[in-house]
Design a protein around this nucleic acid. Sequence first.
DNA 1: CAGTTCCG
DNA 2: CCGC
Length: 219
Amino acid sequence: MQTIIPDLFDPPAIPWNEPIGDASLLLHGFVLAQEEALLAALRGVIAEAPFRKMQTPGGRPMSVATTSCGRLGWMTDRRGYRYVTGDPLRGQAPWPVMPPLLADLAGQAAALAGFPAFCPDSCLINRYVPGAKMSLHQDKDEADFSQPIVSVSLGLPAVFQFGGLARSDTPQRYLLTHGDVVVWGGPDRLRFHGVLPVRPGEHPRMGAQRINLTFRVAG
DNA sequence: CAGTTCCG
DNA sequence: CCGC
């Protein structure tokens, strides 16, 4: 005889929104309804501009692999962090066009969080294999901090750290799973944030990786 | 000399 | 370490 125990601790099946920081929002499952179209668009971008490992100004390789789409792409090398219009890996070729579906989803998420008319000109795409992480940092290479940041999580889960305006502020931790979107802006725009090392695992749709899309108005 | 999406 |  076996006892059936309900999965009381499974995440909710329907999307729900969670306030974070002072004026920001974690939208659980927001992109799931468009999952296949989103992944098809992402596949096209990666086929044109493949992932590559970049180096921090200190000369160390980042644990994530990176590419971009949109008019501007974020990059880092020994000379520092910056946005560029040409892909250094492909002879300064323009970055792939940002698929309209991606820009639309980011705009809709931003609007729900209270940031209407968000028109990103850059989408940074980071691939995390197990063990990859992102140390606490601020997104401050953009021209206009009145515009929010919109982050889409795909694949393996990760713990997102959302801190304060000083590096020393203890961050809050949020679990981000496949389909989640985080929007932060306004008074939260320059909060330190990061991702703890991704744990080994297998996602049924994405395999052994996490991919994060970060939409910005960079220029 | 400062900053650091890095490390210990 | 590098660019200011």
